[in-house]
């Protein structure tokens, strides 16, 4: 464990909590892509199947349970509890365009052709594109509430910190996980456009982010 990975996990946790609290307190999921949240729940489900078979550390197990619980709670709030505030008419990204290539690639490129390893690889590739429906929804509506942009900031920051973690681990323990690194770089690149808007618009105190 190093400071970059810890900061990354904390940033990820903060992002998930920001979103969950926003939906819970405003009793609305307007402007939130339910599809992205379902994809994230799928990412955690397929990645943490080793929750009961492999024990890494208390921290690892606790965080896996927390991420699974919070992501399913978020999906529940969107599709069940506050479903009448869900903007399904704006959440129209075709997720099959993400799932098919990701499934194909995880069968082609993986560390071992075993169910657990292929599902882990699937979760890594899926996470890189899971935010697409949310970013698409924002471009479609042309705006995002500032709290939603803070959620996206911490979500994008988490994988950027993981890249620093991978550089650190390569230099200190000559460890590298190529699938995770390539996918993590792609994932972070997808956030760059948002980061630019975030720093130039939201942090200028302009409340919600309106796209040009």
């Amino acid at each position: 464990m190093n400071v970059f990975r810890l900061a990354g996990d904390v940033s990820h946790l903060v992002a998930i909590i920001i979103l969950l609290l926003k939906i819970w307190r405003s009793k609305s999921c307007a402007g939130i892509s339910g599809k992205s949240q379902v994809l994230f729940a799928l990412v955690f489900t397929t990645r943490y199947l080793d929750l009961f078979t492999v024990f890494i550390s208390v921290y690892n197990t606790v965080m896996k349970v927390v991420f699974l619980a919070l992501s399913y709670a978020t999906v529940y709030l969107i599709y069940m509890r506050f479903r009448n505030s869900y903007n399904s008419e704006n959440d129209t990204f075709r997720v099959e365009f993400l799932l098919v290539p990701v499934i194909g690639l995880s069968f082609l490129e993986n560390y071992a052709f075993t169910p657990l390893e292929i599902l882990w690889t699937f979760s890594i590739f899926l996470e890189a594109v899971a935010i697409m429906p949310q970013l698409f929804m924002i471009t479609k509506t042309g705006e995002a509430e500032s709290i939603t942009t803070h959620y996206l900031f911490f979500l994008g920051l988490y994988r950027a910190l993981y890249i620093a973690n991978w550089v650190w681990r390569y230099h200190t323990e000559s460890f590298y996980d190529l699938i995770a690194i390539v996918s993590g770089v792609v994932q972070t690149i997808f956030f760059c456009d948002f980061f630019y808007l975030y720093f130039t618009r939201v942090l200028r105190g302009r409340g919600k982010m309106t796209l040009p």
Binding site: R5, D9, D50, N60, K64, W120, D177, A180
Partner: peptide, 10 residues
């Protein structure tokens, strides 16, 4: 090995 047998990252 270069890749993680048991993936120790979240």
């Amino acid at each position: 090995a270069d890749e993680a047998e048991a993936h120790d990252e979240l």
